[in-house]
């Protein structure tokens, strides 16, 4: 059974894993898991990033995607580094899901997701609103990952 929300997320459901560059400039490894609930009325994303050099968790969070009253996507997001925020879908190219919202500490968070063939491209950036104080944009290139088989899914 498909829903307007699932028509956007169906190709992303499952596990994804790949390298990303952390805001600190260090290299990270990211794993994401998209899961639908209530027959496609909500999609949950669990994301975890490790610092490759130390093996320590850099960031862990979970978000719920649903359609708002105007038909645009809303994400209720929790990230242990900065707490809760709400991201709202913004205008972008048709094949990009772009979201933006305000964080509790005054920063604005921008996230974009684009599925290109079998690669999921995730970018995110924290902006302070002060020239020169924005954090670097992070880019993660993720491949589908089969947790059962412990390898990239064919």
């Amino acid at each position: 059974m498909t829903t307007p929300l699932l028509s956007r997320f169906q190709p992303m459901l499952g596990f994804w894993r790949g390298p990303n560059e952390l805001e600190t400039g260090r290299r990270g490894l990211m794993e994401m898991h998209f899961q639908s609930h209530f027959e496609g009325e909500v999609v949950q994303l669990d994301a975890h990033t490790w610092d490759i050099a130390t093996g320590e968790t850099f960031s862990a969070g979970t978000g719920l995607f649903a359609l708002g009253p105007d038909g645009r996507i809303i994400e209720n997001l929790y990230v242990e580094r900065f707490g809760f925020c709400r991201l709202d879908e913004t205008e972008d190219e048709p094949d990009v899901l772009a979201l933006r919202g305000d964080l509790p500490d005054g920063f604005t968070m921008s996230v974009s997701l684009r599925l290109e063939a079998d690669e999921l491209l995730l970018t995110s950036q924290l902006k302070s609103g002060v020239v020169g104080m924005d954090l670097p944009r992070t880019v993660a290139r993720l491949r589908r990952y089969d947790r059962q088989r412990g390898e990239g899914a064919k």
């Binding site: 209530f38 009325e41 719920l64 649903a66 809760f84």
Partner: peptide, 26 residues
């Protein structure tokens, strides 16, 4: 009714909860 909630501490350690309801939305 379906309800999925995430409960966690804010940076000030106070608990907060966000989620989705099949009847009421976010």
């Amino acid at each position: 009714h379906g309800l999925r909630l995430i409960l966690a501490p804010r940076p000030d350690r106070s608990l907060h909860c966000m989620g989705f309801s099949t009847r009421f939305g976010m």
